[in-house]
Measured scan of single mutants.
Amino acid sequence: TEYKLVVVGAGGVGKSALTIQLIQNHFVDEYDPTIEDSYRKQVVIDGETCLLDILDTAGQEEYSAMRDQYMRTGEGFLCVFAINNTKSFEDIHQYREQIKRVKDSDDVPMVLVGNKCDLAARTVESRQAQDLARSYGIPYIETSAKTRQGVEDAFYTLVREIRQH
């Protein structure tokens, strides 16, 4: 089974770092803004072998026109913010609204991801993020692309959301 996953969120929150940590098991430290990259990885989730087709997208506003296209083809979405960047957390709402509009559905598989949880300088409390996820009816997972904490959990949870859909 193949799953088309799309990673969305503001610029600099760590979308590529999360994806590369999942696929290649290493942490990319330097920031190089993405336009669009796709990665494929075969994994076993709950005993089922599946192929993850992951689209890593641009957070930069100037590429926002490309969003409709990949939102149409994606089956599930990782909505990523950084726990030390309140603005990126506030941006999640717009991504969710755009996904709902493009998919013409209120019920699209999504996982809210709070990345950079290895950093002490948190400005978005776990509780705020949990409340937001609960209001959307989606899971919330904290990750660190640096330490790998929660990385597999985030992507695998999204696959489970798609399966249950």
Results as ranks from 00 to 15, higher is better:
residue 74 G to E: 09
residue 159 V to C: 11
residue 23 I to G: 15
residue 41 K to F: 08
residue 111 V to A: 11
residue 24 Q to V: 10
residue 156 Y to G: 10
residue 64 S to F: 04
residue 78 L to R: 01
residue 133 A to I: 10
residue 151 V to R: 11
residue 20 I to G: 02
residue 134 R to Y: 12
residue 105 S to K: 00
residue 64 S to G: 13
residue 18 L to S: 05
residue 135 S to P: 12
residue 70 Y to S: 02
residue 94 Q to F: 10
residue 45 I to D: 10
residue 19 T to A: 12
residue 133 A to H: 03
residue 13 V to N: 11
residue 10 A to H: 07
residue 150 G to K: 11
residue 6 V to W: 10
residue 32 D to G: 07
residue 150 G to Y: 11
residue 29 D to H: 06
residue 59 G to I: 09
residue 39 Y to W: 06
residue 102 V to W: 07
residue 48 E to G: 10
residue 70 Y to P: 04
residue 49 T to N: 08
residue 19 T to N: 13
residue 144 S to H: 15
residue 94 Q to A: 10
residue 25 N to S: 05
residue 40 R to M: 01
residue 49 T to M: 02
residue 63 Y to A: 15
residue 59 G to R: 11
residue 124 V to C: 11
residue 42 Q to D: 02
residue 80 V to N: 00
residue 4 K to Q: 03
residue 18 L to R: 00
residue 125 E to T: 11
residue 20 I to M: 02
residue 137 G to F: 10
residue 20 I to N: 01
residue 148 R to C: 14
residue 72 R to A: 11
residue 139 P to K: 10
residue 35 I to S: 05
residue 159 V to Y: 13
residue 58 A to I: 04
residue 79 C to D: 01
residue 151 V to M: 15
residue 26 H to F: 10
residue 141 I to R: 11
residue 158 L to C: 06
residue 52 L to H: 01
residue 124 V to S: 11
residue 23 I to H: 11
residue 80 V to T: 05
residue 115 N to K: 14
residue 157 T to P: 07
residue 128 Q to N: 12
residue 43 V to A: 06
residue 66 M to E: 14
residue 111 V to F: 00
residue 52 L to A: 11
residue 156 Y to W: 10
residue 9 G to L: 01
residue 30 E to D: 00
residue 3 Y to M: 10
residue 62 E to D: 12
residue 76 G to N: 06
residue 5 L to I: 01
residue 117 C to A: 13
residue 98 Q to V: 08
residue 99 I to V: 04
residue 84 N to R: 03
residue 6 V to A: 04
residue 29 D to P: 07
residue 142 E to P: 11
residue 76 G to V: 14
residue 109 P to E: 03
residue 69 Q to G: 09
residue 56 D to T: 02
residue 40 R to Y: 01
residue 128 Q to V: 07
residue 141 I to W: 01
residue 140 Y to Q: 07
residue 122 R to W: 09
residue 44 V to Y: 03
residue 148 R to W: 15
residue 123 T to R: 09
residue 105 S to N: 15
residue 77 F to A: 03
residue 1 T to Q: 05
residue 54 I to A: 10
residue 82 A to S: 06
residue 99 I to K: 02
residue 50 C to P: 10
residue 112 L to Y: 05
residue 154 A to L: 15
residue 12 G to T: 15
residue 116 K to A: 15
residue 64 S to L: 06
residue 56 D to W: 05
residue 111 V to G: 13
residue 102 V to L: 07
residue 25 N to L: 04
residue 27 F to K: 06
residue 119 L to R: 13
residue 131 D to E: 13
residue 131 D to K: 14
residue 52 L to T: 13
